[in-house]
């Protein structure tokens, strides 16, 4: 019996019997189906070419659906981007679903559909997966775990230790859009259509960047902790100082508006479709051009450089021409009012 959109997930859907098979055949395979997955083996057998990048991440976001995306988009893009930032071409991804009893089939279909769309966009195959159902109240609708593997592009060596003084720091576009979208919704703000998550698969862009500049030292996606966290991690790992220019940071007006009202600093807000690159100075302009030519990098900018005289620190040249330190973010972001 095929499941339709008015149905809901039951404990039997995770029990491995006939009802589980129905979920697989009428919901999951129609969205995810490809020859490798349709084998329905215990695991996928795939070919790789040389050095392999391997990553995993779990997704527990609320709300599940938000402007410009949903939890499924985050899961696939997050894993694709984690592979891309290691200098890999993403190849295969696994999808583990933990569903709450009562979760609407219609919502599940929407999420799976987006996951397939994003996988196609990134050129990655969903080759294996798992579904479990937990009792009402034991999870928040749906949790997703993904793992991905990819081929390291030969001749590249992404490593924070390769960062030297005098390199340029690039970002692929505006900061804070994803977190501002989610947090605005949580705190009673209504946002215009122009503010939505930046969630996107960046592997196409990073491959193009590495083609023109194989000695890019670092690629990093500024997710939780935002730009401030990434810059501090790289400063710490490389022993270089990082000096960025406040005036060069691309920040959309809507994001700044949310930050002004709720008291956030955009440097600490999570992004889901941005890439920070540490690039040798003589290659910075050509890398920038490649980023700007990509659909997810049109607002790319050079935001700063690495320096020798402030080892391990991140500095921000402020709008009034002073320099202050930017440190690691602390804990959850909650609105300040006083």
């Amino acid at each position: 019996m095929a499941l339709d959109d008015t149905d809901k997930i039951t404990l039997a859907h995770g029990a491995g019997g006939k009802v589980s098979r129905e979920l697989m055949e009428s919901v999951i395979l129609p969205e995810f189906g490809n020859p490798m997955l349709e084998q329905l083996h215990d695991g996928a057998i795939v070919g790789m070419s040389g050095q392999v990048a391997f990553t995993t991440d779990s997704y527990v976001v609320q709300p599940l659906f938000f402007a410009g995306g949903n939890i499924g988009k985050l899961a696939v893009c997050g894993t694709v981007n984690d592979l891309a930032m290691t200098g890999a071409v993403p190849r295969y991804i696994s999808v583990g679903l933990i569903l709450e009893e009562g979760f609407p089939i219609a919502d599940l279909r929407r999420i799976l559909h987006t996951m397939r769309e994003m996988a196609d966009k990134a050129g990655i195959y969903i080759v294996t997966g798992d579904t479990k159902v937990v009792e009402h109240g034991k999870c928040d609708g749906i949790f997703i775990n993904t793992a991905g593997i990819g081929d390291i592009i030969p001749g590249t060596a992404i490593a924070p230790q390769a960062v030297r003084p005098g390199m340029k720091v690039l970002i692929s576009g505006s900061i804070g859009d994803h977190a501002a979208t989610i947090l605005a919704g949580r705190h009673g703000l209504e946002v215009p259509d122009t503010l939505h998550t930046d969630c996107a698969p960046l592997s196409g862009m990073t491959q193009a960047m590495l083609m023109v500049a194989p000695d890019i030292a670092v690629l990093r996606d500024p997710t939780r902790g935002g730009v401030a966290a990434v810059l501090n991690e790289i400063a710490d790992a490389s022993g270089c100082g990082v000096l960025i220019d406040e005036a060069a940071l691309p920040i959309h007006d809507e994001v700044q508006g949310v930050c002004d009202i709720l008291g956030f600093d955009p440097l600490y807000l999570a992004n889901e479709g941005k890439c920070i690159a540490f690039v040798p100075a003589n290659e910075a302009e050509s890398v920038l051009k490649v980023m700007q030519a990509n659909e997810y990098g049109s607002e790319a900018r050079i935001i700063g450089e690495t320096v020798a005289d402030a080892p391990g620190q991140v500095g921000l040249r402020t709008a009034i021409g002073s320099i202050r330190v930017v440190d690691m973010p602390l804990g959850n972001i909650v609105p300040r009012i006083c």
């Binding site: 500095g315 330190v325 440190d327």
Partner: peptide, 11 residues
């Protein structure tokens, strides 16, 4: 932002 060790470049 303020204590001596947090002055950029003067650690």
């Amino acid at each position: 932002y303020g204590r001596e060790a947090f002055q950029f470049g003067q650690k």
